[in-house]
Simulated scan of single mutants.
Amino acid sequence: MRVVLTGGGTGGHIYPAVAVGRQLEREEPGTELLYIGTGRGLESRIVPELGIPFEAVDITGFRRKLSLENVKTVVRFVRGVSRAKQLLRRFKPDAVVGTGGYVCGPVVYAAAKLGIPTLIHEQNVDPGLTNRFLSRYADVIAVSFRESLERFGRHGRVLHTGNPCATNVLQADKTRGYASVGVPADAPIVLIVGGSRGARAINDAVVDMAGKLHSMPDIHFVFVTGDADYDRTDTRLRERGNIPPNLHVIRYLNNMPEVLAASSLVVSRSGASFLAEFTALGIPTILIPSPNVTGNHQEPNARSLADEGAAVMMLERDLSGDALYREISAIIEDPGKLRRMGEAARTLSMPQSAEVIAAELRKLAGKR
């Protein structure tokens, strides 16, 4: 089977596409993949490192107000469609999978115009602008959250599949996770992470509460600052002094699924792919949605888990070192609450997501 994957800008778009591709490779060893992204997005670095052939299309996103830049974006879109058609004709895929981000637009649109079966996956509760546009051209729409089903109106085939990242994380080796962060096997871990680039507000709250962590010596706090904010955060911690030995400060994790598998509680943003991994593993979470993302889409994601008792949601405006410490201690020091939240998270998981999407792609390819 030959499949084109497309989606970019953030890991939240890239990793679900890769998860679908890896699932197809597991099920059909002769599968050939091609990833089409932009030369400026994270995908241009991440995808080649994963050993997947990569091609670039030049495209930028629309601004949400009238501007000359939007006129230029229309021109880039038309050129992007032309470039995508060239790549698709050359590769001859059986199907195209789009996972969001503006690069998806010209690629999935071009595939639809060439009569190639298409499937788009929406990770968030509230669909992004690109997937809303593509919904009129895609053969199948897959969504991570049940609440998203109604967001696509009368489209003939909208499926609640969950997020394919959930399938991948279940194969993670937690023993390697413990070893990679220098924590004894089976010790309780509170993982604090603000995403691949980090989150300054979360980092500042952890710095402010660091002195209190001496009171929980048996709990290991794995604090991932993100590459961009590591130096500033590390300096602030050292200026405060008295860094507790159970606080492990890390710049970046390249084995996040393994460390997640070893964690007892996670504090993070509420990107959809991360949430899929938490629920698949049954990990309680404290979610701090980013207020800086398009359409504030992380808050509905977080609220979806909080309403089911799987997470506690804290808005960034309410975040402080004292507030975060109170929430962490209230959960980690109450085994019953920790267990109930984990069970609630697991009931929301869809660990077969990648398999379901792979099966749908085979159906589409067979109808061609």
Rank of each mutant, 00 (worst) to 15 (best):
I116S: 06
N131T: 12
A142C: 15
G153I: 10
A201F: 13
R151D: 00
A201C: 04
N168V: 15
I116C: 09
K212H: 13
A179Y: 00
I192N: 06
G128H: 12
G128V: 10
E147V: 00
L114C: 04
C165D: 12
T99P: 05
L114A: 06
R154Q: 10
V193A: 14
R136G: 10
V96N: 07
S148C: 07
P164E: 09
R157M: 12
G156C: 02
G177P: 13
A166T: 07
V158T: 10
V96K: 08
G194E: 15
V169G: 07
I116Q: 03
V206I: 11
V193H: 01
D208E: 15
E122V: 07
R132Q: 15
P127F: 01
A142T: 15
G98V: 02
A110I: 02
F152C: 08
V193C: 13
H160E: 15
E122C: 04
V125S: 09
A110D: 01
L159W: 02
G211V: 01
S196N: 13
A187E: 11
Y178N: 08
A111H: 06
Y178G: 09
L114I: 00
G195E: 12
V183T: 12
G128D: 14
G194I: 11
I202E: 13
G211M: 03
R151M: 04
G162V: 00
G115N: 04
Y178L: 13
D139H: 14
L170W: 12
A187T: 15
R136Y: 07
I189P: 03
H155A: 12
V207G: 08
D173N: 15
V103K: 01
A138F: 02
H155Q: 13
A201N: 14
V125M: 03
N203K: 01
T99F: 03
I120S: 03
S196E: 14
S135G: 13
V97R: 07
R151F: 00
S135Q: 12
F133V: 10
V103Y: 04
V207D: 11
N168Y: 03
E122M: 03
L129N: 08
A166C: 06
L191W: 01
I192T: 03
D173W: 07
F145I: 04
T161C: 12
D139M: 01
V108N: 03
T130E: 05
Y102C: 01
L149M: 09
N203E: 11
R132G: 07
L129F: 14
S144C: 03
A138T: 10
T161Q: 12
L170C: 11
K174V: 06
T167S: 13
G98D: 00
A172N: 06
V108R: 05
P117K: 11
